[in-house]
Simulated assay, not measured.
Amino acid sequence: MTEPAFDHAVDATPAPRPTHVTLEGRFCRLRPLDPARDTDGLYALSHGPEAPQQWAYLFTGPYADKADFDAHVRTIAAGTTDPVYWAICTPDDRAIGWLSLMRIDTTHRVIEVGSILYTPALQRTPAATEAEYLLARYVFETLGYRRYEWKCHNLNEPSKRAAVRFGFTYEGLFRQHMIAKGRNRDTAWFSMIDIEWPQRKLAFELWLRPDNFDPEGRQKVSLAVFNRLLAHQGELVLRRATLADVPAIRALKDIAYAANETITGVLSLPRKADYAAMMADHEIWVADGEGHLAACAVLQVAPEAVIYSLAVHPDGQGRRLGDAILAFSERRLAELGADRVTLYTHAALEQRIAWYARRGFLRTHVEEMADRRVQHMEKAL
């Protein structure tokens, strides 16, 4: 499935270069590398029994001795233009890895994360994921880059899996792209772009929530699940929406809710929504139709599971797309850990309320608003 083209005028102002700011998280902090403070610990962590695997796909290392490693750390720590390195630190400021922003194209606002060293102390920890979140947020929100790249040796399967888990999209293979440590390197290219960032950011933040971890610190729902981009339900093929879809989402809501408004006499709440803003805290899924969106689901995942709105284009009547988009929404929220889901609709829409009731939703209460009465409903998943 192909997303709609997003060929439009953009701000051509060059992006600023990254600087050695400190980025604070809950599980880790990113700060400038400090050779005097960090070399001994990083050398011990990166030159143990797993050193050959850790350094296999990096351009340098492992190092013959600590003096050589120290010289390398001093070199990369001193860089302030391209690449720019950060130490990945524990909350008490102990360096356990590093990463960099590199191949910086300020004119076109394109930048790459690379030269990533995750020592055993960092691997498979929440800090490893939070470090990627902090840097991506800095790239998109502070610096204003349009495109964020991840590249790796095509033989580096863990790196390719990590790219997808973090929300990057595979773009292709550049054969014999470079020579690395005296050998041909085929490079796998991945990217994330600014119109995708709101939903990628949401996935990171949902994964990082304290309630996504059990008392032993184990994740309940994986980031790969939060970052799922495609889904199938009956004949519907759904994809995560991007900012490019906002006009089409608004158009679908306008046409889908028109019949309801002849009954209620008021503008439907989903037609009042700012869907660009909602991408920050709601999952939005769309299915493409012929020249328009066929369906759309807007789902709140936390702090509780809510089906905010569903819409099906009138062209889909008779194809049970309403059942499909509702079933998908329930399945998706259950996949994300919900055991109950709520929704609401105008209290005057008795046929719609009865339709939900036949699908297992129970009336809970009616909310009195200034211009309408809203029926709330709930279902156990």
Rank of each mutant, 00 (worst) to 15 (best):
T262V: 15
L223G: 00
A231L: 05
Y275Q: 10
R320N: 11
Q219S: 11
L229C: 05
L230V: 14
K201P: 03
A231T: 05
E216D: 11
A276C: 08
Y308P: 00
A305N: 10
I255H: 05
I249D: 04
A327Q: 09
L267R: 08
D214W: 02
L236Q: 07
H232D: 14
Y257P: 02
V341R: 06
A256F: 06
R320Y: 07
G217V: 10
V221A: 02
R239S: 13
A277E: 12
L206G: 03
P210Y: 01
V221R: 02
D315H: 12
L293T: 08
V266P: 09
G291C: 06
Q219T: 04
A258H: 14
L252W: 06
V301S: 02
L333G: 02
L343Q: 00
D211L: 07
A334T: 15
L202K: 01
A297Y: 01
T262R: 11
H232V: 12
K201N: 05
R271I: 11
L229M: 07
R331P: 00
L343K: 01
D315A: 14
N260I: 03
L243E: 08
E283S: 04
E283P: 00
L267V: 15
E283K: 02
G265S: 07
L326M: 15
D211T: 13
A295N: 04
A294R: 15
A295S: 13
A273M: 15
K201Q: 11
Q219H: 12
P247Q: 09
N227R: 05
L333D: 02
P303I: 05
L299H: 01
L343D: 01
L238K: 03
V301N: 00
E261G: 03
